[in-house]
Amino acid sequence: MKILVPIKRVVDYNVKVRVKADNSGIELANVKMSVNPFDEIAIEEAVRLKEAGKATEVIAVSIGPEKAQEQLRTAMAIGADRAILVQTDAPIDLGGVEPLAVAKTLKALVDKESPDLVIMGKQSIDDDSNQTGQMLSALLGWAQGTFASKLELGDGNLKVTREVDGGLETLELKTPAIITTDLRLNEPRYAKLPDIMKAKKKELEVLAAEDLGVDYTPRLSIVKVEEPPTRQGGGKVADVDELIDKLKNEAKVLS
């Protein structure tokens, strides 16, 4: 069984981002970039399936700038066998390659590679869209198991447990299928130095976005990007009695 894992190069989750002075987007110069955290969980899950003898090959793919090779190398250090970069100079966070275009590109790669399963993140932490997996499964006519916290592979089907607003839902899906990861699916490993060295020698194919014939013209134009209003906080109370007094008599949120 072959597993495709789409990963996105995003601003590291620890970075406090800043809006560009001209309000056109986010300042990305000299900012630490990483694999989108949900995609790390996706690679980890795929690699564990390989280690358990259930998968034969794990392919990491990304749509992004030349530098996204760094994140594909990270994926291979965790255990992906090879990688494909669909290279583009268009922005991938806002006002460039949008989830629908990513899904179309991924569909072209699925048609080419014929995986049995695609495991990807539920959400990019830059655009916070939470769309691409659902869109890819629609374009392929496949089943979708979103927000997964548990996967059980059967023969021609799979069981997925999903983190939903009311609790945990279990579905059975026909395969091939798309899975999107939630935080509790697994805890990704740290790649060890020997694995990082080994990853440098693994195959990384680079395709030009144009070659896949997908139109990257954005459907959503960015009118502006602004800082949210800042909240005036920082007030302190000395003890529980003062807190109760303030909540009742100043904020009037308790009676």
Partner: peptide, 10 residues
């Protein structure tokens, strides 16, 4: 977007 660190008008 960006965990609420920015608001995009699209």
């Amino acid at each position: 977007v960006y965990a609420g660190n920015a608001v995009a008008t699209v």
